[in-house]
């Protein structure tokens, strides 16, 4: 097509647009996450039992770790939808945060030991249910972030999809903590890890297909 003709067509097609605002996108995601959590409490899937904080030492660790990862990854993911933003350094910070959170699990006491009990500790039937629920619970934030990604213009798709996946997965796991009765760090790292990895892989597959521009 002739260059001038294209310019004319685009100018004729012009309509006012509202520039993308970071705080609006962050607000939308906070709302999505809050509504999801409120619904889980409303239907009885989750319950806020403060007594569990004393009897299950991993509850606090899980809530703080997953909440922190979700918040940092979510905020960085939204920022990465700005074409001029580079998420290189924040991703390194996030990797350090994830590593610290995992290390934190090692210092939690009251864990059954011994290699022979390893398989019993994993409780794979419950574990698979746990991983599946985490993946399902991560869907609302995943959909929200992918839609925001489609509206934005991510230029570093590799990092954007990782951040989207991590944020959604961590939020799914965070929501699941309120209904999870297990307290063994091995069980948690294994099955929470599987559920989160599934969401990360899903984001890796979905985001480039929908948010490519």
């Amino acid at each position: 097509m002739n260059f001038e003709l294209l310019v004319d067509r685009l100018a004729d097609d012009l309509e006012p647009v509202r520039p993308r605002r970071l705080w609006v996108d962050v607000g939308i995601m906070v709302l999505v996450a809050a509504v999801e959590l409120a619904l889980l409490f409303a239907v009885g899937f989750a319950n806020l039992d403060l007594h569990r904080l004393e009897t299950q030492p991993t509850v606090g660790w899980r809530l703080v770790s997953l909440g922190l990862i979700s918040a940092v990854a979510g905020y960085t993911a939204i920022r990465s939808f700005d074409p001029t933003y580079s998420a290189k350094r924040p991703v390194r910070w996030l990797a350090a945060i994830v590593a610290l959170c995992l290390l934190g699990g090692l210092f939690l006491g009251d864990v059954p030991g011994g290699v022979t009990t390893l398989l019993r500790r994993l409780e794979w039937t419950d574990g698979i249910h746990c991983a599946l629920r985490i993946t399902l619970l991560s869907m609302p934030p995943l959909v929200g972030l992918v839609l925001l990604g489609c509206r934005g213009a991510p230029t570093d798709m590799r990092r954007s999809r990782l951040l989207v996946g991590l944020a959604a997965a961590a939020w799914g796991a965070f929501s699941f903590v309120f209904s999870c009765p297990f307290n063994d760090p091995l069980f948690i790292i294994t099955w929470y890890g599987l559920g989160c990895a599934t969401t990360v892989l899903l984001a890796r597959w979905v985001l480039p297909r929908l948010a490519c521009w």
């Binding site: 685009l10 012009l14 647009v17 520039p19 934005g152 213009a153 521009w213």
Partner: peptide, 20 residues
């Protein structure tokens, strides 16, 4: 020329991502 035109189409589609 082809890619220059493609960029104009992108500018049009993503003009809301420019922060004034």
């Amino acid at each position: 020329d082809d890619l220059a035109q493609e960029v104009l189409l992108t500018v049009h589609a993503k003009r809301h991502t420019y922060d004034p």
